[in-house]
Amino acid sequence: MLGRSAIAGVWFALASGLVAAQPAVQVDASQVQGPRPLEEQTKTAAIRGYLKSWQSMSGAFEQNRIDLLDADFVGAAKEKMADTIGEQIKLGIQTRYQDRSHHIQFVFYSPEGLSIELIDQVEYDVQVIDHGKPISTVPTSARYIVVMTPSETQWSVRVMQADSQGNRSPGT
């Protein structure tokens, strides 16, 4: 059981070709539940897909382009984000999500191999731009619960939901 063998503590570099600063990524696969071992190759593919989804999300929200979600999101996650982008367009705003660090913990690999659940403690900045004018940038820390399922060639994000545990953002 490669996934359970040790706290990986592995630092991954983001996929190549990114212009923005790469986030620091720490991965822990020592607490995976379920009878199916999480193979190294599966783990790597899921992390790659998940980090790529942050890039897609960032681009989609900044450019208000729903099509940028297609490659990495499916199901409810994609529908919700597409709705948000539609709302941004109506309101004349854009948002820029810049992830600074991820602490990814694999928590579940379903026995039939059709879903992976992970928790990510993410540090990121959110910038709001209203009719082209930058309003504010808010440093944020949130704990995301993510469910990924395999699609044709990769693992895609099906659920992406911030949990109330572990969140802290600078208040007023």
């Binding site: 709705d83 948000t84 709302e87």
Partner: peptide
């Protein structure tokens, strides 16, 4: 003023 509520799943102004 203007109030923004922003998240990946919903946005309000």
């Amino acid at each position: 003023g203007t109030l923004y509520i922003v998240g990946p799943s919903q946005v309000l102004k």
